[in-house]
Amino acid sequence: MRREMVALALLTAVAAVPLRFGPSVAAAPRATAPAVAAVDVAADSLAHGHDVADATTLYNAGTVALERSAYGPSITFFLAAARLEPRAPDVRANLAGALAAAAHAAGDDEHPDDATDRPFPIAPDEGWWIAAGLLAVGACFGIARAVRVLSRSARRIGDGAMIAGIVLSTWLQYAAWEERAHPVAVVIAPTLSVERGPDEPSRPAVLLAAGERVRLGEVRGGQVEVRLGANRIGWAAREGLWRVADATRYTPKFQPR
C-alpha cells in the first residue's frame, strides 16, 4: 500500500506543479534578486509574457526584420513563431536563413547555428496534450486491470503508455521550469558586452553578436545575468536582449508595409 501511495504522490506532484505555482508567481526571479527587479520582471510577465500570440503576426514581423538585416529581432520572432507552428515550412526556412545570416555577420561561417534541425518538431502545447493522452491511455488500462484480468500484451501497452506519459510530462515540466527560471533570450544589439559582476573575479568581457541565443538569470537594475547553457558568463544591459516569450510586445516595430 505504501508503494502505491508514494507512486501516486509522485505522479500527482508531476502534474500538479503548474497548478500550485501559477504563471505570475513562477515568472518572478529568485529570492536573491532585489525586490524592485522582481516586481519589474513579474509585471513584465503579467503584461506581455502570457498574452495570446498569433503565429502569422510573429512570422511577418520576423520576415520584415530579416529584410531589414535586423537579425536579432528576426530570430526572436521566428523562434517565438516556431513555438506555435514548429513544422511550418516558411517559419523554418526564414529562421534558418536568419541564423545563417547572423552567424555570417558574426564571422562564423563554418558553424552556423541551426535551430530547425529537430527530429520531432512539436509545439509545447502539442507535447503537453500528447503526454496527457498517454497518461489517459495508461490510466484506462490500469482501471481495467483493477476490475478484471487483462492479457499480458494489454498490460504492457497500458504500462508503456503510462511510463511514456510520465517521462514526457516530466521533461516538459523541466523545460517549463527552466524557461521560467532562465528564459531564452536573443541578443539584438550588434555587439553586447557581458562583464563580470563587481564581486566576481575580473576577466576580459565577453562580446556577444546579434542573434546569439542565451538564457537570462537574475535582474539587478538595468543589468541582467547572462547564461550560456548552464554556465553564468556575466552581466549585460537588459536593453540588448529580447526574451522569446515577450516577442509579441515588439511586433509593432516590424509591421509589413
Partner: peptide, 20 residues
C-alpha cells in the same frame, strides 16, 4: 494562436491530473 510560454494548457493539465 497560443501562448509563448512552455506551461501546460489547462485542458491537458486537467486530463493528466484526472488520469493520474
Amino acid at each position: 494562436r497560443g501562448r509563448l510560454t512552455l506551461e501546460a494548457p489547462p485542458g491537458s493539465r486537467a486530463l493528466a491530473m484526472a488520469s493520474l
